[in-house]
Design a binder for these strands. Structure first.
Lengths: 350, 350
DNA sequence: CTGAAAGCGCTTACAG
DNA sequence: CTGAAAGCGCTTACAG
């Protein structure tokens, strides 16, 4: 692979001049510039980013450590992060913690070793010594979605309290009184906050959230299944189960289906985090939707600000309730625009 | 941040000795080793991976360029790739091409500039000059899922022909004769192969695949919606639509729902690629499942072989048909294990 | 077993 | 405008 030396000798200039034209430095003669560019072209030269990073102490790379790539919420977050970062001239390397603090630390360490310019993290836990130390040492950092209290780092997240209040109002209006929640890990802010928002909303209706109606999940599907089974085994099972993320809702659905129960006739279900498939599940699932892509973009902007020495703005965006059919909502008219007779396709008997 | 020099002076040895203990080089005295390790500990020293890479010409990083992170199939692939790579001592950095050749090239270029040790790619197209040149230049490379014919690179993929044959047999057995496909881009191998497999399977039953029943999609949801609408507008719409990936199946579902049609009563639907939500859609979707995680692992092993100068094995794993309810399959008994009277939860009227 | 030195491929003051 | 030189933080023959 051609190096800057090869280009220099091919163009008959010094490596300094090559470097200057490559970096758009103004003081280069037009003649030198053309010769260098021609040599670059001819040799198919590409600057070695590793060498450049060593010299400039900047990698133009952002690290993103998320709790679980398989969670569509985080996938979408990652996508918007990469998009915004690219627009600002950065690459992003993703570390998937799989909700495991040890894996999270592994990725943070690897990223730090590779000298990424800044770190975006959605912590799986309350903060390992490594992460705390990185923040203290001044690594440009911002938390997305989840955060660690007491650490002086901008936080970009969504506030689901109003949406959860709307959800509870909605459920109450439907006549439901026994409402349970599948919680996320207490070590995460979102794990705690969603329970608390739920509890406060219930209180506003004079409803209690007994311990038996708080199932401890870990944001993964299997825990949703397990917790739901526990609820169903209760002498007085809940009328509606609220899963604190979409994967636990999936697990809940698995459990319900395994027992041959119907949603919402036997048990209602709602989820935090909305995903495209919720429109087509049986039944369509009522959910709290976060402005995921906006969060990703805002997080990158905050991080790039920090990298540039600016303060970096914390952002909180509201989530909103999306009402569908999984909580016993009245059925919509099936054919709002045309009568069945006009149905465009008839099934032929072939 | 402490450098190797700091450690050396703190330990009273040369940087060479520090480097040796850090790299497990045998000829270091026990005494020097302990002093170095103590200094490393005390200074919280971590070797700069950028400098190390420049010197050793290895980054211990693999690039993975996938066509679409939002596609759960690729998300799962990416996860298994990262897992296997980590087990072998590599990091992976993911580039999401979003099914766009230009973005794909952007990522390949960035990855190459960063001197990744090897490249895993699922090409969005027939091969850009950049990718072809990289392969020719000897960059360790392997194709996963999709590949570029005529390029001498190992291919790790799954063969869906038998499963598609099973699918067609299944549909035929159910009495369906007018079968249509939402195809992927003709520039991709999977885009072409799935159509061809479908056509061959139909031929085995004396069935034709007319052009009107081949809709050109791009593996993204929106195209599935558009193509499905086209099918429905046909004088003789198909009885079953087979979507060549799960996102186009999602789009098809959107289109069907928007017209108020029922699946499978009005139109049947099947998909290539199985995802967890298909169990819970309305109706559960009959799909062709790939051994996704196995593919990811095999691809990493092949790539690491290439990096190590070994040949790197091409692998083809069979896909399999998962029959559910979206094609007019007879309904299963609802409560196979218990009678409705024993149903564990009754809905209280509160 | 150990250290001085070269060198990986760049960028950037410095001098001219 | 241009080049020689230093230096980023490592690793690794080479000599002892």
């Amino acid at each position: 692979m051609a190096s800057i030396k090869d280009v220099a000798s091919a163009a008959g200039v010094s490596v300094a001049t090559v470097s200057r034209v490559l970096n758009g430095h103004p003081s280069v003669s037009a003649d030198a510039r053309t010769r260098v560019l021609a040599a670059v072209e001819r040799l198919d030269y590409r600057p070695n980013a590793v060498a450049r990073s060593l010299r400039t102490d900047r990698t133009r790379t952002l690290g993103l450590v998320i709790s679980d790539v398989l969670n569509p919420y985080f996938t979408e977050l990652a996508r918007s992060v990469e998009e915004e970062a690219r627009a600002l001239g950065y690459s992003v390397v993703i570390g998937n913690a799989d909700e495991r603090p040890d894996l999270q630390d592994h990725h943070v360490q690897t990223l730090l070793d590779r000298r990424i310019d800044g770190l975006l993290v959605s912590p799986t836990d309350g903060g390992s010594p490594l992460m705390l130390e990185a923040a203290r040492a001044g690594t440009p950092m911002v938390f997305v979605d989840r955060w660690i209290p007491g650490v002086d780092v901008p936080v970009v997240r969504s506030d689901g309290r109003a949406a959860v209040r709307d959800l509870v109002a909605h459920l109450h209006g439907l006549g439901h009184r026994r409402l349970a929640i599948i919680a996320g890990p207490a070590a995460t802010t979102t794990g705690r906050e969603r329970v608390q928002a739920f509890r406060e909303a219930l209180a506003a209706y004079g409803l209690d959230l007994p311990d038996a109606y708080i199932g401890q999940g870990d944001f993964q599907a299997e825990s949703g299944r397990r917790v739901t089974e526990g609820f169903l085994d209760l002498p007085e099972p809940p009328e509606v189960v609220f899963a604190a993320d979409n994967l636990m809702a999936l697990g809940a659905l698995d459990a319900l289906r395994a027992r041959g129960l119907r949603v919402p006739e036997d048990v209602g279900l709602a989820a935090f985090d909305d995903i495209r498939w919720f429109v087509h599940t049986d039944p369509p699932i009522t959910a709290v939707a976060q402005p995921t892509a906006d969060l990703g973009r805002a997080a990158v902007r905050a991080l790039v600000d920090r990298i540039g020495g600016r303060p970096g703005e914390s952002v909180t965006l509201p989530a909103r309730l999306v009402v569908r059919r999984s909580c016993g909502e009245p059925a919509p008219e099936r054919f709002p625009h045309r009568s069945p007779a006009q149905s465009p396709v008839r099934r032929s008997t072939s």
